[in-house]
Simulated assay, not measured.
Amino acid sequence: MMKYCLRAGLLLALLLVSACHRGLDPVAFQAEGRPPKLSDWHVVEVRGGKLVLNEGVVPYDLNTPLFTDYAHKLRTIWMPKGVAAKYDATDTFDFPVGTIISKTFYYPKTADGKFSDVARTYDSSRDFAGQGLDLANVHLVETRVLVHREAGWAAIPYVWKDDQSDAELARTGAVIPLTLVADAGEREDFNYVVPDESQCSSCHAQDWVTRKIHPIGPKARHLNRDYHYAGGEENQLAHLMKVGYLTGAPAPAEAPRNANWMDTHASLDARARAYLDINCGHCHNPKGAANTTALTLDVSAPEDRHLGICKPPVAAGRGTGDHMFDIVPGVPNDSILPYRMDSADPGVMMPELGRSTVHREGVALIKAWIAAQSGGCVAIH
């Protein structure tokens, strides 16, 4: 009976994958230019009321994701046959020319079905259908394509049409009025901002000297987790090795791994550091856009002034909230870091791009982390 169930499960998985691929042209690596439609890439396309993944397009997720106005995200990666990314224990993997990474931002639909209403929820149980998204249950907003060409990486944003049939090129970005609806019925109007190409590049330029852009999420510590693929659950690093998209990776147990910020079984410190790493570390590092602040928020920073503990801000202004230090151990309400996270004012908020709302649960996590720290800061006169 067990063998029969396993065979039946495998057959079902294969049928799901086959159904996803049916009728799709092969993935098209666009070596130059900006294709006007997302479907020109043939990476993900709408078929039969579902957003489906093409053959060879591998979905993935991160241990702790970047916050974007409570949006859910479907991340994918595709590579031409015969090439693979090279593993790196610390930095973004070395992806070959021809790699296409996509990230689709979407929201679960609300019970009332109003198009501009989207659910503020962490529940993704109704999102997926096989390897794709069930459009009966989700509202697609945008898809960002990151493609590795001979001249380097290019970031190309697309905005989904109201009829959800395809996404159109949006080089200058877009502003989409939406309303977040919580499970208890609380409503929050906001403008979802799709970044333009230059804003995409500013976040993805991890080295502010060369200004060359790179992917942010595909690092070992973010990818070292299980994913429920159409064929079953498997560690993502092991899966990428198995399908030939990655070389040189150690066993998952030997690779670095960030905590899931929502996992209360992990330590408060590990959860907070993982949250700051993915949300802030791509700018706040020695080579990043915020390197002049002397504030390092990636996971490598020691827990001292580099991390902001008792460090006065480099520049004064409204962004400090009249607070003296980035982090005051034990006193989150006197700390600049959560003050800026807890604002949606463009002159105060951090991060400066990528959100229009406050991540309440993220702010609560960082405040709890600071509150648990011991010590104090000497006031500057």
Rank of each mutant, 00 (worst) to 15 (best):
G308P: 04
R305I: 05
H228F: 12
Y339L: 03
W153I: 10
N191F: 09
A253N: 10
A371E: 08
A71D: 05
G152A: 04
P26M: 05
P35V: 07
S300K: 11
I101M: 15
D326F: 12
Y106I: 10
V194L: 10
M1E: 11
A151W: 00
I380L: 15
A255E: 01
K73L: 02
G56E: 06
P256C: 01
Q236K: 02
M241E: 14
H265W: 06
P157D: 07
D334V: 01
N333V: 05
I213D: 09
I336N: 05
M349L: 09
P195E: 04
M341W: 05
I213S: 06
G113Y: 12
Y158E: 06
T110K: 06
I77M: 05
V299Y: 09
G308E: 11
E45A: 14
D25K: 15
T64H: 01
P108W: 07
A316R: 13
H282R: 08
Y275P: 09
R355D: 03
A71C: 15
N235E: 05
S202F: 13
A205M: 04
A28I: 04
H148K: 15
H42G: 05
I77N: 00
K81P: 14
K37Y: 13
R318T: 07
I216W: 01
L38W: 10
G321A: 13
D322R: 15
S374N: 13
K103D: 03
D196G: 07
L11M: 11
D163P: 09
E234C: 06
G375T: 00
W78V: 02
T357K: 05
L135R: 00
P286Q: 07
Y106D: 08
D163S: 05
H282N: 06
F105P: 01
M350T: 08
P218W: 01
D322G: 12
S116P: 03
V363I: 09
H306W: 08
A364R: 12
L15Q: 10
L14E: 12
L140N: 05
E303F: 14
A266T: 07
E142H: 06
V175M: 14
F190D: 08
V378H: 11
D326R: 08
C310M: 07
A274K: 00
V27A: 02
A182S: 15
P36D: 07
A119Y: 08
T172L: 11
L307C: 06
G98W: 02
L74A: 07
R360V: 08
P313Y: 04
G248K: 12
K219R: 14
A315V: 15
L178S: 08
Q236L: 06
R187H: 12
H381N: 14
A119N: 08
V159M: 13
N258D: 07
K161Q: 15
Q236P: 02
R305W: 09
H72R: 06
A372H: 10
D269Y: 03
E352L: 13
A31K: 13
D263G: 08
A154S: 14
M79D: 03
L365Q: 02
A220T: 04
A371K: 14
A259M: 07
D196I: 11
D127I: 03
T90E: 15
P108T: 10
A71V: 11
H204I: 10
A155S: 15
P36I: 02
Y158A: 04
A249F: 05
N291M: 13
V145G: 03
H21I: 00
P252F: 00
Q131L: 04
G113N: 09
S202Y: 13
E32K: 11
R340T: 10
D304K: 11
V83S: 06
S124F: 00
